[in-house]
């Protein structure tokens, strides 16, 4: 339950808005971070916190593509497939990932480690092809880099190749 663990965070979020409902997306992001997806229990709890009904929470969840209603892999690999990345090899990138992970788009590896998604523009058009894994961007990807990133994540849970603040 979110309240038990994050009462302070919730109070801080609620203090930012004159209308409680505004804290809905922040709380959903919190719930997803906590469980890896937005569960029914979380939706009910958030509805209670914000004086909303569960359908109001549910319909909002389904509008935003970053929120998932189903459990996904530990690492969510989201490949930008929009035109600008596609011009510089997004489709190749998807191919490499499918080969390395042995799964198709929309699938999760058997070990529940990786989920592969093709998504629309991530705002990284000058540094494609790229993907986002959980909170981090990985840019100017090559097949060799992809292999190393996946390996690092598998081994250590982290990877130094993620982007820092935007470089010129």
């Amino acid at each position: 339950m979110l309240r038990a663990k994050y009462q302070n965070v919730i109070d801080d979020l609620l203090s930012r808005y004159p209308v409680k409902q505004s804290a809905l997306l922040p709380l959903l992001n919190l719930a997803q971070k906590e469980e890896g997806y937005v569960s029914q229990a979380a939706m009910k709890e958030i509805a209670g916190i914000l004086d909303l009904t569960p359908p109001q929470v549910f319909e909002t969840v389904t509008f935003y593509t970053m929120l998932s209603l189903k459990p996904i892999g530990k690492f969510h690999v989201q490949v930008c497939r929009s035109l600008m990345c596609a011009l510089v090899g997004a489709d190749n990138l998807l191919g490499w990932l499918q080969k390395h992970l042995g799964i198709g788009v929309g699938q999760t590896t058997q070990d529940k480690m990786f989920t592969l998604s093709a998504v629309e523009c991530l705002g990284s058009c000058g540094t494609g092809p790229m993907f986002q894994i959980n909170d981090d961007y990985y840019e100017r990807l090559t097949e060799e880099k992809v292999g190393r990133i996946l390996e690092d994540l598998r081994q250590t849970g982290d990877c130094a190749m993620k982007s820092g603040p935007f470089l010129l």
């Binding site: 409902q21 505004s22 809905l24 997306l25 922040p26 935003y64 593509t65």
Partner: peptide, 27 residues
């Protein structure tokens, strides 16, 4: 000043959709 993160919807860049989203609704 507060940071308010969206959750994946291009349309929320449209100013009134942004306001709806910021109010905790579908954008």
């Amino acid at each position: 000043i507060y940071v308010h993160a969206g959750a994946g919807a291009y349309i929320c860049g449209e100013e009134t959709a942004l306001l709806e989203s910021l109010e905790g609704k579908r954008g």
